[in-house]
């Protein structure tokens, strides 16, 4: 090889880069997964959150531990911001994401999903002494596939919500839901992290928050009755087909490993046990 000046420069830069970044070359051809990095937010209780000592705790960290043992892969969980999390996965920053990510057709264009491990409907939370006193349909679940029922429920909800501001985490299925069904009736305010929506609901900057019902209930419980989940809850359609591990499309072997491990935790009751521990209800999807 003739060493030209430019290739010499790249050589040098490459060597420098190797020194700086501690090259851990992962061969592209033979994929033997020994260690993977799994991103989560650490801010979506009770799915995942930070303990005071900085550890990640919750349903997903514990589930990942189980999966890790069954796949015989060391899984390192790292905290990442939600906005940009999917871009970071396709970009190769980490190999999987577990952050209550719902399977939607739009996301499936970009990433692959394992089989789902949790399925929760989406709903709204309001403050007991807030601008909205209550919402209709509490306790009733609407499947978006049932268009007539969805239309009726949305219209019923639109009345008390008219002119109000609803907070929602950016780029979530709930954000899509609001944009699709209530855009003309309410003001939608998007936040980059979920807990911020609840802080602003408490302070009265937004009149309602839309999120996963599990997430809502956890926040409501923590608020000593000041915050309540109210109104219809919705599932299916653009709200996705349950939460799953997000993976790169180029790693089908890894998906296979996750699917197998998920099947195993579902069959021996581990998944249900974890769901009951963290959610207090069984929201494992029918596999």
């Amino acid at each position: 090889m003739k060493i030209t000046r430019s290739s010499f420069l790249t050589l040098g830069l490459g060597a420098a880069a190797g020194l700086v970044f501690g090259t851990a070359p992962r061969s592209a051809s033979a994929k033997e997964w020994k260690v993977i990095r799994v991103a989560t937010e650490g801010a979506f209780p009770p799915y995942n959150m930070h303990a005071p000592d900085g550890r990640l705790i919750g349903f997903e960290p514990e589930l990942l531990q189980e999966l890790s043992a069954r796949m015989n892969i060391k899984c390192e969980m790292i905290a990442q911001a939600w906005d940009g999390m999917i871009a970071g996965l396709t970009d190769g920053k980490y190999d999987a994401i577990m952050d209550a990510v719902s399977i939607t057709p739009k996301r499936q264009e970009v990433i692959a999903f394992s089989t789902p491990y949790a399925a929760a409907p989406s709903g709204l939370a309001i403050m007991k002494d807030g601008a909205i006193k209550s919402l209709p349909g509490t306790g009733t679940r609407i499947q978006l596939a049932d268009e007539a029922a969805t239309k009726a429920a949305v219209e019923e909800m639109a009345k008390p919500l008219a002119g109000k501001t609803i907070g929602v985490q950016v780029a979530t299925i709930q954000n899509d839901f609001l944009t699709r069904y209530l855009k003309d009736v309410v003001t939608i305010r998007t936040y980059s992290s979920g807990p911020d929506t609840f802080l602003d609901l408490k302070s009265g900057r937004v009149d309602a928050v839309m999120a996963s019902a599990i997430n809502l209930n956890a926040s409501a419980k923590k608020s000593n009755g000041e915050m309540i989940a109210s109104g219809y809850v919705f599932a299916g359609g653009l709200l996705g087909q349950g939460s799953a591990v997000g993976l790169r499309k180029s790693d089908p072997e890894l998906k296979e490993l996750f699917d197998k491990a998920l099947k195993s935790v579902a069959e021996d009751g581990t998944l249900k046990r974890l769901a009951l521990k963290w959610f207090e209800i069984d929201i494992t999807p029918a596999l």
Binding site: S7, L13, P25, S27, A28
Partner: peptide
């Protein structure tokens, strides 16, 4: 840059 150097696959940053 690393691939130029003969490295295959992504480099973590």
């Amino acid at each position: 840059i690393a691939n130029q150097f003969g490295h295959t696959g992504p480099v973590e940053i």
